[in-house]
Design a protein around this nucleic acid. Sequence first.
DNA 1: ATCTTGAAAATACTATACGAAATAGTATTC
DNA 2: GAATACTATTTCGTATAGTATTTTCAAGAT
Lengths: 255, 255
Amino acid sequence: MATKKTAARVTKRTPRRSVLSDEIYDMIKAMIFNHEIEPGARVNIDSLSVQLEVSQTPVREALARLESDGLIAKEPLKGYKATQLLSIKELNDLFQFRLLIEPWAAEQAAKLIDNTGKTALKAEMQSAKTALKFAGDGQFQALSEHDSRFHTLISSISGNNTVADFYERTHCHLHLFRLYMANKLHLIDGETRGDFVQNLFEQYYQSGSGQLAIKEHDAIAKAILEQNPKAAKTAMHAHIESSLKRFSPVAAARN
Amino acid sequence: MATKKTAARVTKRTPRRSVLSDEIYDMIKAMIFNHEIEPGARVNIDSLSVQLEVSQTPVREALARLESDGLIAKEPLKGYKATQLLSIKELNDLFQFRLLIEPWAAEQAAKLIDNTGKTALKAEMQSAKTALKFAGDGQFQALSEHDSRFHTLISSISGNNTVADFYERTHCHLHLFRLYMANKLHLIDGETRGDFVQNLFEQYYQSGSGQLAIKEHDAIAKAILEQNPKAAKTAMHAHIESSLKRFSPVAAARN
DNA sequence: ATCTTGAAAATACTATACGAAATAGTATTC
DNA sequence: GAATACTATTTCGTATAGTATTTTCAAGAT
């Protein structure tokens, strides 16, 4: 009988990856990320649960969390809808917030980094460079993902979990990626300001600023690895300001 | 016609206070706030729904939101439990974070405040003083609520909604109040270190530091009302550091 | 023609019951 | 005494039904 039970257990379906509602949360977030759910679009619980082939319960929990993340908004008795793209002011506010915490985080990271951290930081920079060489069409996405990991890594090395946590909660790379995608999609739709937008991206992200961002990351990483707090702080500050300058025209094109 | 419509709406049963799950969210948060749900205690969906006399659905949504607020932790397949009290490190991290954003917010507030803001700020200071005169037993709670409103107000006057939002999400007054209450309750339970704790609170919160905090608030409010950004920034910085000093021994007593 | 209005349809919200699966605790076997 | 098997409890997800509210839209009133 023991054998029988064991056999039964072996044949049993995979032991359950995690909690379904967490997976649904990630899935919906991804849908927002890549415009499967467009900014401002209504999010219907029923159709989502049908689409994802789960019941409403996990969908509801996921949406509740996404709401408190500020990624979707709830209007009582009217339902959820994806939040709009960042306005110019919101973009500025967000980057001002980042300017308050991230330069400090970089400074701390330079002070406190250990060998594990150094290895991780070097690895991230290395993998980013090789990935960006081949990314091709998905280059901006690859850049965005690297950017997210890079900043997350530094804030975690800072040793202050509260700061690291709040950086995460900005979901800034998600917001920036949505801005990028929104313009890109308009381009595909063949809007007349296509040339402007096209120029913007080719110039800023794929050839120009993509490389520029990596250069800025290099400067930050270098300062941290050399344990030079002042330099790390300045480099991070410069990077965030420079990044804001790159994104402002994109947001402006939509406001 | 318009009249008729209005009439019909009036006779109709109350248009529904809001969404139940929002109310439940507030209720559970309040239960955490005042130790009806103790730190680390398990939170059972079923019993909560029975206790609050609602079904499980709104409880689930509320708990999902509370989790992303960091007030409740979820262990997959084991359920929810209230988070522990802040450790010394967490307290330090939290206050470091506040030091990064709140002095800046005070500075901005001093630059940008308008008449509406001035009126609100004066009113808050005034009502706090009168409330604290009469509060008696609930003095610390009154102080805590004033503190929360005061800092929220300033961060909102700063004009940066992202910063204001993230200040809110620290739930710092809730965490501090829990620390306070935890010690207070132990006192009631008659623990032997009662004298120590008693002394701590009588000295720091009810007579001493309660007044001190108000004095510090006064200095901040004055600087902002006089539109002196530099002074506002330094005053806020000093206040947060001083506040941390007041709470550290409390947290230390529990770690 | 514009504006109400009011029913039908769609959707959000809540309640409830059930089942599958995992955890935790207890008993049993070797 | 340790590994195993069994039981109880609890979480997690599903399904479904019913109510409340918003939305839609076409007929009727101004």
